[in-house]
């Protein structure tokens, strides 16, 4: 195994007290993880075999995210959407979809809302993890470049006119703003600004930069940088109250 990745895996075990187990599994994302608990005493990382060529990097990212979440083992955060507000939003959005039958509109709205919240929860921590991997795993830079460029290409497919015309504006703009922030962040980390062209062309430059600016104002050493960024973005995107933080202790 790649030595830097092994060191990262060791860091997770040292910091959290639990080892990491890796499983190849077809999932909807590139990779994911489930944090260990006393009842399930292993961090379970899942890697999508479709992206196997960047597997080491994806594993390094998941390890970095575990380290971020477990920075204070007495307060491990869990992002928890507020069911009442989410249901209200689903009703609100689906009510505007006049040309779609109600059950389909409900289902589509539910998918959009959960996707939006998933992005709010995941993009800030991904940006932090990207920085950790850049710093701690230089030998994975090539994999990181390829994997993120591929991910950003997948993300820009959202800008397709068909998707834009079928997605309610308030959801579309928030999603794209977060994607743009991720794109601008990667442009800064990698030095390759070409990846931001599509957001410039589509007019999402300002909002993306605004979110990236908010991310940067938070002290990188702060133990709660992840939660603070999510909260700050929620403020910018008018998503306050759509979720709560739940904390658990590993002591």
């Amino acid at each position: 195994m790649n030595l830097e990745l092994q060191e990262l895996l060791n860091s997770v075990e040292q910091a959290t007290g639990y080892t990491v187990s890796v499983t190849t599994k077809e999932i909807s994302t590139h990779a994911s993880f489930v944090s260990a608990t006393p009842e399930r005493p292993v961090h379970a990382v899942f890697i999508n075999p479709k992206y196997a060529q960047w597997g080491d990097y994806l594993l390094a990212m998941q390890c970095s995210m575990i380290l971020i979440k477990w920075k204070d083992i007495t307060r491990i955060p869990d992002f928890s959407p507020d069911p009442q507000i989410v249901n209200n939003q689903i009703r609100n959005i689906s009510g505007k979809m006049e040309n779609i039958p109600a059950p389909a509109a409900q289902k589509f709205s539910s998918m959009l809302i959960s996707g939006l919240l998933q992005q709010l929860n995941s993009i800030p921590i991904q940006m932090m993890a990207v920085e950790i991997c850049r710093d701690r795993c230089p030998s994975l830079h090539r994999q990181q470049n390829e994997s993120i460029q591929n991910e950003l290409r997948e993300m820009t497919s959202v800008l397709d006119k068909k998707i834009q015309s079928t997605t309610p504006q308030e959801i579309f703009e928030r999603c794209v703003a977060m994607n743009a922030a991720y794109s601008y962040h990667w442009a800064e980390v990698s030095g390759d600004a070409s990846i931001t062209l599509s957001y410039q062309a589509a007019g999402f430059c300002a909002k993306g930069k605004e979110l990236l600016g908010a991310y940067k104002t938070i002290d990188p050493k702060s133990v709660t940088r992840y939660q603070e960024t999510v909260d700050s973005w929620a403020g910018y995107l008018n998503l306050n109250g759509w979720y709560t933080w739940r904390y658990r202790s590993n002591r």
């Binding site: 820009t156 800008l159 006119k161 070409s194 990846i195 062209l197 599509s198 062309a201």
Partner: peptide
């Protein structure tokens, strides 16, 4: 294929001048 061209896929779809 965007990887052969120095542009983003969305720009291809948009057909904009760049």
């Amino acid at each position: 294929d965007p990887s052969l061209l120095p542009v983003e896929p969305s720009l291809l779809q948009a057909g904009t001048s760049p």
